[in-house]
Write a protein that binds this DNA or RNA. Structure first.
Length: 884
RNA sequence: GGGCAGUUAGCUCAGUUGGGAGAGCAUCGCCCUUACACGGCGAGGGUCACAGGUUCAAGUCCUGUACUGCCCACCA
């Protein structure tokens, strides 16, 4: 039974109620045994440390739209929620808390510290889940996962051991990126390169035999003590004679060779390069290639080591100044120029990273890359497709992935070293004794795994792998991965690698990469800039549906979103519009209308609306399945506001008041049906307001809108002819309104109108639409006929050949109608000219397709007609004026 | 250095196979018409970045240029 809705839509109240109801009734907890095609999505797990930002809101909204729509299409939908333990980020947060207590993690010790992080996670980690809830996400909370859950940890260990046994994980001493602040190794893509101002020093290296010198250029003079060669290009004429000679490291006086390698760019600096294998990635490669000595002169804290001779114990930064001064004193500093060069920074704390040699664990990504690359687009399609180039390029140039981190929060590496025999054991469970020598004393590797290692397993670890679960059988691979392009490599590519390797199938059929949300000026949102838009504040202020609709409407493929609060405010109006349309409907739907066949209804407006509804159903459905979210939102917006509200609701007002019971019932039934269906169409984007209205609509079999199927097509309601006729009537109504507005006649002024139709058909149509025309253009009288005598003082227009003459006697200054008509005539004339020009072009008439030419001819004829009509009207009008 | 986007109304952006330039917001005018002033009705506003080319026809396809943004890269 329908009730009156309150006058204003109150999102807070409504949302809270539905959130609770949906969660309690577990409507989003699917059974693997349920019918329907499988549809699954895993959430990109937010960091436990995180507060939900607008990027999450976009991500979650789009996923929710897809899931709700998939349910409407009868699919068996699973959306798995979860969180990521976010190793470094979370450790940093907790360390910061400790610092306020004047403590460091080392004060607590490993075990106590990890316990402390767990406690922190229990306290604060759930905030992010409430935020996911706030967005109206239809996730299955019964399947909530965390990357450090026991089950997922088992998966991590299993994967590690298998990859190790297959030779795809190995340990070795390599040069890696070291963050001296986080005190850990970083993977290559965890380093952000930024252009920074620096100096390029030119330093003279004297030859050992005193026969001369070579000048090198460097940006990092503090690494000079670690030099083990000077390198030039073998093609370089300037240095050819020096190759093979020995030179001396400045200040230290150590002897090093001069070698040649085509890697050296002759154009840059002096064309001679100092080689410091332990402190530069390229020098490392050179050192390996030329069997150079490896001398580590800086430690993991950025302090000079004992091998740095006189500089031992000094911080790198101080050492730089000191060594430059020393070289200068020795007369070997030949210059220093300013230059911009790119410097690597830690993506978590933004400290400058040091290239550093150490023993680390690696995944042989180079071996896993080819299959991963080739899976796209064969097995997995990426949208937008333009990312495929980037995908291929990255995988073609990939290097092995450093997965060990020198922190405490994360999955500890399942490798043990026997203290007795030194043998390494890699195993899923802690070994009780060394398999080699049987000794019982084994030390586990201190390091933990990169956070992205466990995230890489997410699509199957969340479904219970390595167990053989019903969920996995039903829902793996997932249907689509929806995420931001910023983690295409961190996450998407690695999930692909692991999915292909362990499951034999890629983890998702589609990858939809959505935009980055920026501020109104196009800048990245960040807390420090203070330009963030907090989704929760927006929900609080404008309601969740308004936020969701805004994000959906702006989610055009392959383009960033510039968001401002004003846009959200704007779309709140749309939510309110829907609410009020429903209020209006409910006033007239106190009781269920009697069912009628929608494809056989009377009334041009009813036929038109149902015809349009079919089109929108089609268009929106296609847009959803093709990830054209913005289109889907726009289709819904236009239909609801511009067609349903602006026209249909106004057109049926006379019907609803009518004494003709049949007519009133038809209007009410069409209203009921169209509103119901449009609610379903909009529901994926605006779940709350649609659910609330749905519940209030009268029905014989109450349901929850979340269980409602996407409305079936009604081919018999597609009626192009009726739609065209309705559009003519609309044009006529608009013409009257325009005249009134332009002549400054109050809209409420009930003028008289004469219509002179071009033919019988038009005449009949106008006659049948008499009431619609009179009501919507607010007329006092309406005469239709070819022979009607027009009043002297009148304003006029032409619509599809039909002359419209409006009596304006005594209302306005009559000359203003002449200027108005002149303006109309000028407008038509311009079009006539353009059309004529085209048709007089023989190339056009002979070469363009016949249909196009015909259309142009019809168009030109109509324009000519309109022009002639307007001229006639003007002539009659001016003559009448003159006659007075 | 390589790659990818973008450049359309004052602002934010649509524009799917080339065939009469669109929306929202903002602006201006009229209206509190019994769902909604978070509203209704109407109006103004664009050399589609620039230069060439293909075509009967280009915002749309091709080439180049400029500017903006992003990604990747071992120029010390």
């Amino acid at each position: 039974m329908a009730e009156q809705l309150p006058k204003g839509y109150d999102p807070k109240n409504v949302e809270a109620r539905w959130r609770e109801r949906w969660e309690e009734s577990r409507v989003f907890t699917p059974s693997p045994d349920a019918p329907g095609e499988a549809y699954s999505i895993v959430i990109p797990p937010p960091n436990v440390t995180g507060a939900l930002h607008i990027g999450h809101a976009l991500n979650i909204t789009l996923i929710d739209v897809l899931c709700r729509h998939a349910r409407q299409k009868g699919k068996n939908v699973l959306w798995i929620p979860g969180m990521d333990h976010a190793g470094i980020a979370t450790q940093n947060v907790v360390e910061r808390v400790l610092a306020t207590e004047g403590k460091s993690r080392r004060d607590l010790g490993r075990e106590a510290f990890v316990e402390r992080v767990w406690a922190w996670k229990e306290n604060y980690g759930n905030r992010i889940l409430d935020q996911i809830r706030a967005l109206g996400s239809s996730v299955d909370w019964s399947r909530l996962r965390f990357t450090m859950d026991e089950g997922l940890s088992v998966a991590v260990r299993k994967v590690f051991v298998r990859l190790y046994n297959e030779g795809l994980i190995y340990r070795g001493k390599y040069i890696i990126n070291w963050c001296p602040r986080c005190h850990t190794a970083l993977a290559d893509d965890e380093v952000e390169h930024e252009q920074r101002k620096g100096k390029l020093w030119r330093v003279r290296y004297r030859l050992a035999d005193g026969s001369g010198s070579v000048v090198i250029a460097t940006t990092r003079p503090e690494t000079i003590p670690g030099d083990t060669a000077v390198c030039v290009n073998p093609e370089d004429e300037r240095y050819r004679t020096l190759i093979g000679k020995t030179t001396l490291v400045p200040v230290l006086g150590r002897k090093i060779p001069i070698i040649a390698d085509s890697y050296v760019d002759m154009e840059f600096g002096t064309g001679a390069l100092k080689v410091t294998p332990c402190h530069d990635h390229n020098d490392w490669t050179l050192g390996k290639r030329h069997n150079l000595e490896f001398i580590q002169v800086m430690d993991e804290n950025g302090v000079m080591t004992g091998d740095a001779g006189p500089y031992a114990g000094i911080a790198g930064k101080t050492c730089r100044e000191k060594i430059v001064a020393d070289i200068k004193a020795a007369g070997d500093l030949l210059g220093a120029e300013d230059m911009e060069h790119s410097v690597g920074h830690c993506y978590r704390c933004h400290t400058v990273v040091d290239p550093h040699v150490s023993e680390q664990w690696f995944v042989a990504a180079t071996k896993l890359a080819p299959a991963t690359r080739d899976a796209v687009p064969e097995l997995t399609q990426i949208y937008p497709e333009s990312w495929i180039t980037t995908w291929n390029h990255w995988l073609d140039n990939i290097r092995d992935w450093c997965i060990s981190r020198q922190i405490w929060w994360g999955h500890r590496i399942p490798a043990w070293t026997c203290t007795a025999c030194g043998k390494l054991t890699v195993a899923e469970e802690t070994p009780s004794a060394c398999p080699s020598c049987g000794a019982g004393d084994l030390a586990q590797d201190e390091d933990v795994l990169d956070t992205w290692f466990s995230s890489a397993l997410w699509p199957f670890s969340t479904m219970g792998w390595p167990g053989k679960t019903a969920d996995m059988a039903r829902w793996y691979p997932t249907s689509v991965l929806v995420t931001g392009f910023d983690i295409l490599f961190f996450w998407v590519a690695r999930m692909m690698m692991m999915g292909l390797h362990f499951m034999g199938k890629p983890p998702f059929r589609h990858v939809y990469l959505h935009a980055l949300v920026r501020d109104a000026a196009g800048h990245k949102m960040s807390k420090s800039t203070g330009n963030v838009i907090d989704p929760l504040a927006m929900i609080d202020k404008y309601g969740c549906d308004a936020l969701r609709f805004t994000l959906t409407a702006f989610a055009a493929m392959g383009r960033d979103i510039r968001l401002s609060e004003k846009r959200i405010e704007g779309y709140r109006h749309f939510v309110n519009k829907l609410w009020n349309a429903a209020r209006f409907a409910l006033i007239h739907l106190a009781e269920m209308p009697r069912e009628v066949d929608p494809c056989k209804v009377d009334g041009l407006h009813n036929q038109w609306l149902l015809h349009r509804l079919e089109a929108v159903k089609n268009d929106m459905g296609a847009a959803f399945t093709e990830y054209r979210f913005n289109d889907a939102a726009q289709f819904g917006y236009k239909f609801l506001w511009n067609e349903f509200c602006d026209w249909h609701l106004e057109l049926i007002k006379p019907d609803l008041q009518s004494q003709d019971a049949e007519r009133a019932n038809t209007a009410r039934y069409v209203l009921w049906l169209a509103l119901r269906e449009v609610l379903v169409l909009l529901h994926p984007v605006m779940p709350f307001v649609t659910a609330e209205i749905w519940q209030n609509l009268p029905t014989e079999t109450p349901t929850d809108i979340t269980a409602e199927a996407w409305p079936a097509a009604r081919p018999d309601c597609v009626r192009e002819d009726e739609a065209l006729r309705m559009e003519f009537v609309q044009e006529a109504i608009v013409a009257v309104r325009t005249i009134k507005a332009e002549l400054n006649i109050a809209p409420s002024h009930k003028v008289g109108l004469l219509l002179r139709p071009v033919d019988e058909a038009q005449s009949a149509l106008l006659e049948a639409s008499r009431e619609m025309i009179m009501t919507l253009s607010r007329l006092g009288s309406l005469q239709i006929g070819a022979e009607i005598h027009a009043p002297k003082a009148s304003a006029s227009a032409v619509v599809q050949g039909c002359q419209m003459i409006m009596s304006i006697n005594g209302m306005i200054d009559l000359t203003s109608e002449v200027t108005r008509l002149d303006k109309e005539i000028a407008k038509v004339e311009k079009d006539v000219m353009a059309a004529g020009k085209k048709l007089h072009n023989e190339n056009f008439t002979s070469r363009a397709p016949a249909a196009v030419v015909q259309r142009e001819r019809d168009h030109a004829a109509a324009l000519q007609d309109a022009k002639a009509n307007l001229l006639a009207l003007k002539k009659r009008f001016t003559e009448a004026l003159a006659g007075e």
